[in-house]
Simulated scan of single mutants.
Amino acid sequence: MSHAGPARSDDAGLVRAYLDHVRVDKRLADRTLALYAADLDKLQAYAREAGVALADVMPAHVRRWVAQMHSGGRSARGIALILSGWRGFYGWLGRQGLIQQHPVNDVRAPKAGKPLPKALPVDEAVRLMGHEDAEDDPALEARDACIAELLYGCGLRIGELVGLDAAASATARGWIDLGGAEAHVLGKGSKRRSVPVGRAALDALRRWLDLRPTFARDDAALFIGQRGGRLTPQYIRVRLKRRSLQAGLATPVHPHMLRHSYASHVLQSSGDLRAVQELLGHASIGTTQVYTRLDFQHLARVYDAAHPRAQARKPRAK
């Protein structure tokens, strides 16, 4: 293993030669080339600080520099992009026979935190469920209202929703038992589960079933278009987005957002993580635990709004 020594004066020349190589051979855009150059400037700065030539950099150096970037607030994605640039540089040095060991190959960026699922505030979910498009065809309005109620009221996945049939049968992927107030669906991994259906969703379903025959052409599907065919997930996404904008919501709503909202709001009210896992059909409780983070955000907002010690003291007017 090489000992760290004074940085060699040809480091800048190596970087220039590599940038010339990628500019000519890869025909990179000027913007991309500038990003490569900035990443390699950072590499040279770290190497100078460590007193090591670029060709003598070891994996331990790179890991230390990754830790410094991470502690300095650089995002995991940003670090991954920088490492990608360094990896290309050292790959080229290896092909030139200028290094004995590739110092970046086995170094990975920190894991990026999973973004929180987007859920509607309760008041916005209620506003969306209460929206009625008086100008739309009554059957279309009843159908779209029922779709929204089932997505939010049962936490169904979009695939589970479009797979519902109007009646139970030996070939049905899913159906709703009106008398038992249960939705029977085929979820991920071909696993079946039953989900309670609330009163509002049942009322919406009855309204739609009363008007569905105006569309039906012997199609078994519960949700059909005016020509009688089973609705596609993409069509439902478009209709739901349109409905949410008509209802005045700031954020366009997609079907999975209503599933997230269902899970978050049930957890806020019950605190029963295991029950939410069962309702969502998650194989692992770890998948469901992300909603505890949403629940904490809700509690934090309540605290900020209600607790007298959470209010920022306003500066006195001079």
Rank of each mutant, 00 (worst) to 15 (best):
Pro138His: 02
Arg95Ala: 07
Met69Ser: 09
Val104Ala: 04
Gln68Gly: 12
Gly72Arg: 14
Ala166Thr: 08
Val104Trp: 11
Leu128Gln: 01
Ala134His: 10
Pro138Phe: 09
Ile176Cys: 01
Arg64Tyr: 07
Lys118Ile: 03
Leu128Asp: 05
Cys154Val: 05
Gln68Pro: 14
Leu83Ser: 09
Ser75Gln: 14
Leu150Ala: 10
Ile82Glu: 13
Gly91Gln: 11
Gly97Met: 02
Arg173Ile: 08
Asp177Gln: 06
Glu135Pro: 15
Arg87Ala: 05
Ala170Lys: 15
His131Tyr: 11
Ile147Thr: 04
Ser169Leu: 08
Gly73Asp: 13
Leu164Arg: 10
Pro138Asn: 02
Glu124Arg: 00
Gly159Tyr: 06
Arg143Ser: 01
Leu116Tyr: 02
Ala125Val: 03
Ile99His: 05
Leu178Asp: 15
Gln100Asp: 07
Ala168Glu: 03
Gly155Lys: 00
Ala170Tyr: 15
Glu160Ala: 05
Ala142Arg: 00
Ala168Arg: 10
Ser169Asp: 08
Ser84Leu: 11
Lys114Ser: 08
Ala139Trp: 00
Arg87Val: 06
Ile158Ala: 04
Arg74Phe: 06
Cys154Asn: 00
Ala168Ser: 08
Arg77Ala: 05
Leu81Pro: 14
Trp175Met: 07
Glu141Arg: 04
Ala80Tyr: 06
Tyr152Gly: 03
Lys114Glu: 01
Leu156Cys: 09
His102Glu: 12
Leu178Met: 03
Ala109Ile: 00
Gly72Val: 03
Asp106Gly: 14
Pro121Cys: 11
Cys154Asp: 01
Gly113Asp: 05
His102Gly: 07
Lys111Ser: 13
Ala166Glu: 04
Pro103Glu: 08
Trp86Ala: 00
Arg74Asp: 13
Gly78Gln: 12
Glu132Arg: 11
Pro138Cys: 00
Asp165Gly: 09
Leu120Ile: 01
Asp137Leu: 01
Ala170Ser: 15
Ile82Met: 10
Gln96Gly: 07
Ala148Val: 02
Asp144Gln: 07
Pro115Lys: 12
Val162Gln: 07
Arg87Thr: 07
Asp123Cys: 01
Pro103Val: 06
Glu135Gln: 12
Lys111Leu: 08
Gly78Phe: 05
Ala125His: 02
Gly73Gln: 06
Leu120Glu: 00
Leu164Met: 05
Ala166Trp: 07
Arg127Trp: 02
Ala109Phe: 05
Lys114Cys: 10
Val107Asn: 12
Ala67Trp: 09
Arg95Trp: 12
Ala142Leu: 01
Glu149Gly: 00
Asp177Ile: 09
Leu81Glu: 14
Pro110Met: 04
Leu128Gly: 01
Ala80Glu: 07
Ile147Trp: 04
Gly94Ile: 12
Ala139Met: 09
Glu124Ser: 01
Thr171Asn: 13
Arg64Gln: 02
Ile158Arg: 03
Gln100Arg: 12
Gly97Ile: 00
Val162Met: 05
Leu98Asn: 12
Leu120Thr: 00
Arg64His: 15
Gly85Tyr: 08
Cys146Phe: 07
Ala109Asp: 00
Leu164Thr: 01
Lys111Asp: 10
Lys114His: 10
Glu160His: 11
Gly72Asn: 11
Phe89Ile: 03
Ala112Glu: 13
Pro110Ser: 11
Ser84Tyr: 12
Lys111Met: 13
Gly163Leu: 10
Ala119Ser: 09
Leu178Val: 07
Ala172Pro: 03
Val66Asp: 07
Asn105Ser: 15
Ala167Phe: 10
